[in-house]
């Protein structure tokens, strides 16, 4: 039995969940149909984790207004482009809402930062941030999006926007859309044959004879 088939046989033979089988399917359309449905999340979670996660999912910390502003900021940070969608397309607001429950240390910086931002906007434009027009929103964001050149009086805003940028990136690039955008191609059964030839050439590196001899390799035609 060749290795590729043996991986499949193992997968089908050993597992009580359908997770691996589902992962294989993306690679191979000839996979038999007897795949069992994916088991519920519960089997990988301790009971106390399940209770805690349920509470975290249900808890509402932010007001609807705060969530609306988080969404506007998220789409400024990660807008739609020719490669992928926006933060709101990837439901980043829901992610940040969950994280503020999961890591309560984010609550005060986020709530206070949102309030800081709205006060700046009220003073400058007599409107809160989310009610500004797009040009005004970007004027305001430009004051706090560049840590090295921001004016001293905007440093608190810089800290808030930096946290929003980082959380938005975490929320976006960990979705199916974001993973595809960044080009991560792993998380599937495969056979590691080393760095592709063209990449070795590009960087002017090569495997030594010792490595080629001693390391595991797989027949690429299998």
């Amino acid at each position: 039995m060749d290795r590729r088939k043996s991986i499949k046989a193992l997968v089908v033979g050993t597992l009580s969940t359908g997770v691996l089988i589902e992962a294989c399917k993306t690679d191979d359309k000839k996979q038999p149909d007897q795949a069992q449905p994916a088991t519920a999340d519960a089997v990988t979670r301790m009971p106390e984790e399940q209770v805690a996660d349920k509470e975290l999912r249900e808890e509402k910390f932010f007001t609807s207004g705060e969530l609306a502003t988080i969404t506007v900021l998220g789409d400024i940070i990660i807008p739609r482009d020719e490669v992928s969608g926006s933060a709101s397309d990837a439901k980043v607001t829901e992610f940040i809402e969950f994280m503020a429950n999961d890591k309560p240390e984010f609550r005060t910086p986020l709530r206070g930062g949102l309030r800081w931002l709205d006060l700046q906007c009220l003073n400058r434009y007599e409107k809160q941030f989310r009610d500004l027009d797009e040009k005004q929103q970007l004027e305001m964001v430009d004051e706090i999006a560049y840590p090295a050149k921001a004016k001293p009086e905007f440093k608190q805003g810089v800290a808030f926007f930096t946290l929003m940028r980082n959380l938005t990136m975490s929320g976006f690039y960990t979705t199916e859309m974001g993973v595809k955008d960044i080009g991560y191609l792993g998380n599937r059964p495969n056979q590691w044959n080393g760095v592709p030839e063209d990449v070795l050439k590009q960087y002017n590196v090569a495997y030594s004879e010792k490595e080629l001899k001693e390391c595991v390799s797989f027949d690429k035609t299998a």
């Binding site: 969940t17 997770v19 999912r57 999961d102 890591k103 199916e176 993973v179 599937r188």
Partner: peptide, 19 residues
Amino acid sequence: PATNSSQLKNPWESPRRGA
């Protein structure tokens, strides 16, 4: 592990994305 591992889950299958 055959039953209880989170192997091959994608990041979005965790509400906290693996934090």
